[in-house]
Design a binder for these strands. Structure first.
Lengths: 223, 223
DNA sequence: AAAATAATTTAGGATAGACTAAATTTTACG
DNA sequence: CGTAAAATTTAGTCTATCCTAAATTATTTT
């Protein structure tokens, strides 16, 4: 009897492969390895197993990178739904702040039942976004369309409303919170430096200069 | 670099050893094996590792059974506190019924943080008993004293209030629920059969005949 | 007290999932 | 193009945790 891959491994691999392939490009073993804090060689081994599952969870041709199959994508969206519902729920019912939730959700996402998932979804009124503004996959595991664009793509005189902040690092999130760069807040670009891609923006009454390490993580709905 | 035992293994072993040694007697490898659904030989191996930890988590002399050290007991009570708080909280905030919670709590208990633990404890008003009436270890990891006695020890004309039901099996719990044998309910013993130890009891307006498979799991505060 | 039975431990093996080092393939560039 | 650099894969190792089978120790029976 061949032993199954641990579901936690599967879920972590698929979740990160999903995020890396959102742009449409296959993910390299190196990138996956960096995300998972594992060596590239380990990724090769695991990815070969994921491709050998029935049904296959990833498409994989050596040196051509890794993509998700329909089954793999579904499994990935299931974990992401768990994660984002959990974050929402930790913030709303237990008073966590948006910078504290990630770690806790990261551990819980692998162990909760579907029953638990639907109970918290219902208790929260089937939310569509998590505390960072990220879209929550629907119950039938479709990722809703996202029309937001990175703050880094705005130019002087353009304005927008912060829709989502794509970051997990607690320190960074706390920093952004202090700057007031949280979902639903209005921002206006004042100046753009083509030299270093820094943006000078106005948030409320404050002026801020932001590097691309931040502006590429904040997504805007143009207004 | 010696690799640590997985915390989930540690916790599951300690939790079950705690329960088996509550009577004061050391636990045999066979009993532990049955509880954990592993073979006795595996228990021997793991118990030797637990005894070699610094500080030691179990006391262990070959052929003499296994006991918990102070450190091991503390770790066991930590998991039990997690479990019972989780059960309480699943029932009270997500509408689980008392027969559904065990499985879910069993998986969550190993992954929640201390922060999570104290948040739910506070949200619940630091409860002292879980939905089955079992005592919840205190925050400083002491198990409160329990003065309840098994229903099986009552005799005709004696009455009591159900304090706790020591069972996890969902089907059994559902059955007990249907019979009305839940904490805080009043029972009166009508008849005792020394032949098979069956008790005939009155609960509300109903009369029931209960075997020892049930009467030894229901604990009573004499009234 | 010897023999039979039960419980426990030892010894040896499997598998999952990580790692390292070496071999190979792809990509970039003079 | 052809070679250097980068990325990837292969091969082999390690540890945790389980397993089975055989050996040993404890307990019970006669």
């Amino acid at each position: 009897m061949k032993k199954a891959i641990a579901t936690q491994s599967i879920q972590n691999y698929l979740k990160h492969i999903y995020e890396l392939t959102e742009g449409g490009q296959p993910a390299s073993t190196t990138d996956i390895a960096r995300e998972l804090n594992v060596k590239p060689a380990s990724v090769t081994g695991m990815v070969q197993k994921l491709a050998a599952e029935k049904p296959a969870l990833v498409g994989y041709q050596k040196h051509q990178g890794v993509t998700l199959t329909a089954a793999g994508k579904k499994a990935a969206l299931e974990v992401i739904r768990h994660h984002r519902l959990l974050e929402t729920w930790l913030v709303q019912t237990l008073g966590y702040s948006w910078d504290e939730v990630h770690e806790e959700a990261e551990r819980l996402e692998h162990v909760i039942s579907e029953d638990f998932e639907s109970r918290i979804a219902a208790a929260l009124g089937n939310p569509t976004r998590d505390p960072h503004g990220e879209l929550i996959p629907t119950e039938d595991l479709k990722m809703p369309p996202d029309k937001s664009i990175p703050l880094s793509s705005l130019r002087p005189n353009q304005t927008g409303i912060i829709q989502r902040v794509n970051a997990q690092n607690a320190d960074l999130l706390r920093h952004l919170d202090e700057l007031g760069l949280v979902p639903k807040v209005c921002v206006e670009v004042v100046e753009y430096s083509s030299f270093d891609n820094n943006l000078t923006i106005k948030v409320g009454s404050k002026s801020l200069v932001l590097g691309s390490n931040i502006t590429t993580k904040i997504f805007i709905k143009c207004g």
